[in-house]
Amino acid sequence: MTYSGQVTVGGPADVHELKDLMITKIAVGPMNNNAYLLRCRATDEQLLIDAANEAETLLGMIGDDGIASVVTTHRHGDHWQALAEVVAATGARTYAGRDDAEGIPVRTDVLVDDGDTIRVGRVELTARHLVGHTPGSIALVYDDPHGHPHVFTGDCLFPGGVGNTHKDPKAFASLIHDVETKIFDVLPDETWVYPGHGNDTSLGAERPQLPEWHARGW
């Protein structure tokens, strides 16, 4: 089946099968958060992005193989409600942006800085520090050697705009700058975008809207 990235709370997961990596997307309530399970096809090691909520749902998706690690994209509570339970059940190593870790009430084993590499089996993800939605938000970039890149943006980039900066002009200026210079300026239009809520998009679909985002200030 073709991956669409369209999932609903209580509905089935959707699986994006790449040559070296399997990406499973599921939505959990009550705030329609996306969680992503990455599985290295060579080693079967797994990594979870955002243990947002519904620990039972996430652990069912993870299955008996467990996870080696879980990455929290940022400190907002809707992205870590299930983190403690998932870590207790799996023993996973925890990752979070250095400047957001103090706001996550589960110990962060690895503090992540811009440009750091996070591995899942033989697959490498590059962390990009995007400031504005929170001080320490991180996106994860998988530069697929067999195709186009894939980027997990948390709440920093969605279809139609960057993340919420709560009408703070400085925060918006910071976030739009980081998203442009670290994502749009260095990745091609074919890059697939997996956001923290809602449907997926691509950089090519969003790039023409950048001037509008600047003009409106959000």
Rank of each mutant, 00 (worst) to 15 (best):
Y194G: 06
A101M: 05
W218E: 15
V179I: 08
V28T: 15
H166Q: 13
R41E: 10
N199T: 12
V110A: 09
I176C: 04
D200H: 02
A68G: 14
N34C: 05
L203P: 06
L175C: 03
L210W: 14
D113V: 06
I104D: 08
N199S: 13
Y36W: 11
S202R: 13
E85F: 01
V15G: 04
T72C: 14
I49T: 03
S69D: 04
G11H: 06
E124P: 03
A13T: 07
N33F: 06
W80I: 04
G160H: 03
G163V: 06
A92V: 05
N53P: 00
P135R: 06
V28M: 08
I26Y: 03
M31F: 09
A68F: 02
G136E: 05
A173Q: 10
G204S: 02
T2V: 14
F158I: 07
L157D: 01
A205K: 14
T117F: 04
T134E: 04
R122L: 13
V123L: 07
L38K: 00
I118N: 09
P211I: 13
V71S: 10
I176M: 05
V71N: 06
V112Q: 05
G136V: 01
R41S: 12
N34F: 00
D100Y: 00
I49D: 07
A127S: 11
E206P: 09
T8W: 10
G60I: 07
H177V: 00
D78T: 13
T90P: 05
T108K: 03
F158T: 04
W218S: 14
R207K: 08
S174G: 12
I62Y: 03
Q209Y: 14
I26F: 00
H148R: 14
D185A: 15
P135N: 02
T117D: 11
H146Q: 06
T165E: 01
I183P: 01
T90H: 10
P145R: 03
F172S: 08
T117W: 00
P208E: 12
M1E: 12
G10Q: 07
V112L: 00
G147P: 04
G163E: 06
H79C: 09
I118H: 00
E180N: 14
K25A: 04
G154R: 02
P211R: 10
T57D: 11
I104C: 05
Q6Y: 10
M22T: 15
G91W: 11
E17L: 11
Y142M: 10
V86I: 13
L21V: 12
R216F: 12
H76L: 14
D109L: 13
T24A: 08
A55E: 10
D155Y: 01
W80Y: 12
K19W: 01
T43M: 08
D114P: 01
H79G: 02
Q46N: 10
R98F: 08
D114Q: 01
G217N: 09
L187V: 10
E206D: 15
G154P: 07
V162L: 04
D178A: 05
W213H: 12
N53H: 14
V112Y: 00
A205S: 13
P105D: 11
A35Y: 02
V9A: 15
H16E: 10
D168H: 06
D116N: 11
T94P: 08
A88V: 02
L21P: 05
I23W: 04
A215Q: 08
K167W: 06
A171L: 13
P159Y: 01
L37F: 05
G115E: 09
I104Q: 02
P188R: 08
H16I: 01
P145M: 04
Y194S: 11
